[in-house]
Every structure is written in structure tokens, then in C-alpha cells.
Simulated assay, not measured.
Amino acid sequence: MTSSTQSFSTRTFELTTGHHEAAVDLTSRCETFLAEVAPGRDGLLNVFVPHATAGIAVIETGAGSDSDLLAQLRELLPADDRWRHRHGSPGHGRDHVLPGLVAPHATLPVIGGRMALGTWQSVVLVDTNVDNPVRTVRLSFLGG
């Protein structure tokens, strides 16, 4: 039996999503992080957004799926006055429900220093909150 030493690396960065709903592809930022902290190593990458009104999804991008996701979220969570949470823009309460549907984190396998994503999968920040245009994302790698 061999033993390996586990290590943990973490980093945050900010990005601006603007004052409109957004699905922002984070895949290249994740890849750059792993190239720096985990070259050739196996482990887990956790992507976390420490906000009560945003989430992380693993979806296809560039073929309309990201726009479809935002459109479906608008149907499921309309920006109207039905929400009890009422500060901010009209309908802002829906933004606080979003993380119940799109979790604020994703944990992905890392093999040989690269995310083991499917062919069409990307890591995406989902943000429906038009009141908070700046988001923080935390990337953490745990591996051997």
C-alpha cells in the first residue's frame, strides 16, 4: 500500500455579471487554477459562490443551453410581487430561491490535473440578481 500526501489549495476571484441575468462560463478559470496548483495530480475541485442569490451549474454552453436555463428560471421564478422577501428590485425574492434550484457549489473530479468533464460540459455561474453585479467565486482543490 502506498500513501500519498494530500494538499489543499484555494483561491478567490471576482467577476462582474452586470445588471442583467447571466450564465458565465468559468471553465477556463477553473482550468487555469488547476494548471497552477494541481499539474498532473488527481483530486477534487470545488467551485463555490458565497452569495445567497447565485449558483453553479455544470451544463453545455454556446449552443443555447445557457440561455435556455435562464429562460426556464424566469418561468419558474418570475420577477414579480409574489415573493415574501421584498428588498431590492421588484421580484428580487426569486433570486434568494435560486440557490435551492441551482446549488451555490459544484464538486468535480480532477484526473491528471484536469477536470473530468463530459464532452459538452462547462462550469457556469448562474446569476439572476440584477442588484449585485459583482460576484466572488472560490476555487478549491483537494488532492494528492
Rank of each mutant, 00 (worst) to 15 (best):
T2V: 15
T2D: 14
S3C: 11
T5A: 14
S7E: 13
F8R: 09
F8K: 01
T10E: 14
T10Y: 04
R11K: 11
R11T: 11
T12E: 15
T12V: 14
T12S: 15
F13D: 01
E14G: 12
E14L: 08
T16D: 08
T16G: 00
G18C: 01
G18R: 01
H19L: 03
H19N: 09
H20M: 01
H20I: 02
A22M: 07
V24R: 12
D25M: 04
D25G: 06
L26R: 09
T27W: 07
S28K: 14
C30T: 12
C30R: 11
E31P: 06
E31W: 09
E31C: 12
F33G: 10
E36I: 04
G40Q: 12
G43C: 13
G43V: 07
L44R: 01
L45C: 12
V47F: 12
F48R: 11
H51P: 11
H51V: 07
A52E: 05
A52R: 06
T53Q: 06
A54E: 13
A54C: 15
A54L: 14
I56V: 15
I59A: 08
I59P: 07
E60G: 03
E60R: 04
E60N: 03
T61G: 02
T61F: 03
A63S: 14
A63L: 09
G64S: 02
S65P: 00
S65V: 01
D66W: 02
S67T: 15
S67C: 09
L69G: 04
L70R: 00
Q72G: 08
R74P: 00
L76M: 11
L76C: 01
A79L: 00
A79N: 00
A79H: 02
D80G: 03
D81S: 05
R82P: 02
W83P: 00
H85V: 06
R86L: 03
G88N: 03
S89V: 03
P90L: 15
G93A: 08
G93C: 07
G93E: 07
D95H: 02
D95N: 10
H96P: 07
H96E: 09
L98M: 12
G100P: 02
A103M: 04
A103K: 10
T107L: 08
L108P: 06
V110D: 09
V110W: 12
G112T: 10
G113T: 11
R114I: 10
A116N: 14
L125G: 03
V126E: 03
V126C: 03
T128D: 00
T128E: 00
V130T: 13
D131K: 04
N132I: 09
P133V: 07
R135P: 07
R135I: 07
T136M: 10
R138Y: 05
R138Q: 15
